[in-house]
Design a binder for these strands. Structure first.
Lengths: 209, 209
DNA sequence: CCGCCAATTTACTTGGCAGTATATTGCTTT
DNA sequence: AAAGCAATATACTGCCAAGTAAATTGGCGG
């Protein structure tokens, strides 16, 4: 670890930019937690601000309006999902290996604060523009999942079938924990993600050993 | 068909009860549709009433308050799910046969108006009592699903594993269509339900045969 | 040292909607 | 016919929360 320099009270422009980003992130995290706990409409920006010891106009200073707060929370979750897709794509192996790597990470992200926001937020809460914006973030993730599936079907590592319907099934099963997962539970997100993925891979019918 | 009697303007007590129930149901259906389309908070009871050509106090007359409207919508969905469980239980056959019958119906109900309400309504929208009330309707449904699974594992028609985790997986995958299904789509709810269930049964890994 | 911009506050405006008070009409029961 | 109840309307109250205006402070560039 690099030893911290004797702290100077004079921050560079870069430091200030970082500070600003840190504050913004803190606001988003606080907001995401409250949105998940109480729902978007039931969370007032006054409450979010108060939970960090500041006041509402501060939020408006950093984020502009309430919908922006929600969208930025979702964006963070969606970026993580996109990263999961990119990472899985680097795995070299058959389609099913990529798919599994992706699904496990996908499920984990959905149990994180920002991931939960993505899942729990219904389309009806957003304006038309907000919806567009998010759709263009969601689309590549969905496409990635389908690409992994298609690749697996092509190389024989995944059972032949309807790509889209399989994607819906997998997404549904792995989105759902966003609704019930609590950090206080016995199982870790990693464990849950592994188990769900395994069940989806094998199906509930017995397999000849 | 019994020929309708020459309509009398004098309704019996029974007819009036039926009329009242029909009006109540119409209100609930209109409310469920709007809740699903725009979300609970974004739907005002003024709007719901107006969509049937009446005014808000009429809704209060039949249902008391807004939360009651939502709960009664959900109750209808949950009763249908309960019926699905009972029906599946009458099927005689192995655990897996009962489970499959249940799952297919379960998925279908979740795509109906009232079923969609059940899935789309987050816990955070309800008061503590409302939540209790609904939980006691949900519990037996969840128990039924787990019972089918356990029975199947016991008789060997379902692969051995963690009952609870399998139930979560299945429920998640079959709940999710409540979020994306639109009646205008190409596939019927029945077809979707069958396909999803099949994928869940067989898993995405190829099966020897 | 002066004026500007970032960050933040207090205090206000505004709109929407849940819920209610009260009136009206007409059927039913005594 | 009188009293009562079911069903419905109009018009109101009250609250909550989003968003905004204006003031304040302090660092920073010229």
């Amino acid at each position: 670890m690099t030893r911290p320099l004797p702290a100077s009270p004079f921050r560079t422009a870069e430091q200030k930019q970082t500070d600003r980003a840190a504050k913004r992130d803190a606001l988003l995290l606080a907001a995401a937690r409250m949105f998940n706990e109480r729902g978007f409409h039931a969370t007032s920006l006054d409450d979010v601000a108060a939970s960090l010891g500041v006041t509402k106009p501060t939020i408006y200073h950093y984020l502009g309006n309430k919908e922006r707060v929600l969208i930025e929370c979702m964006r963070i979750g969606l970026v993580r999902l996109q990263e999961a897709a990119s990472a899985a794509n680097l795995t070299q192996g058959t389609g099913v290996e990529k798919l599994r790597a992706f699904l496990v990470r996908y499920a984990q992200v959905n149990m994180s604060e920002f991931g939960q926001c993505v899942i729990r937020t219904g389309d009806e809460l957003l304006s038309a523009q907000g919806l567009d914006e998010l759709r263009s973030l969601k689309r590549p993730i969905d496409r990635a999942m389908r690409a992994f599936i298609a690749e697996g079907m092509a190389d024989g590592s995944i059972a032949a079938g309807d790509v889209k319907m399989l994607a819906f099934t997998l997404a549904g099963a792995l989105n759902w924990p966003a609704r019930w997962y609590k950090a206080s539970g016995a199982l870790s997100p990693e464990a849950i993600a592994e188990q769900l993925t395994d069940i989806l891979a094998r199906g509930f019918l017995p397999r000849p050993s």
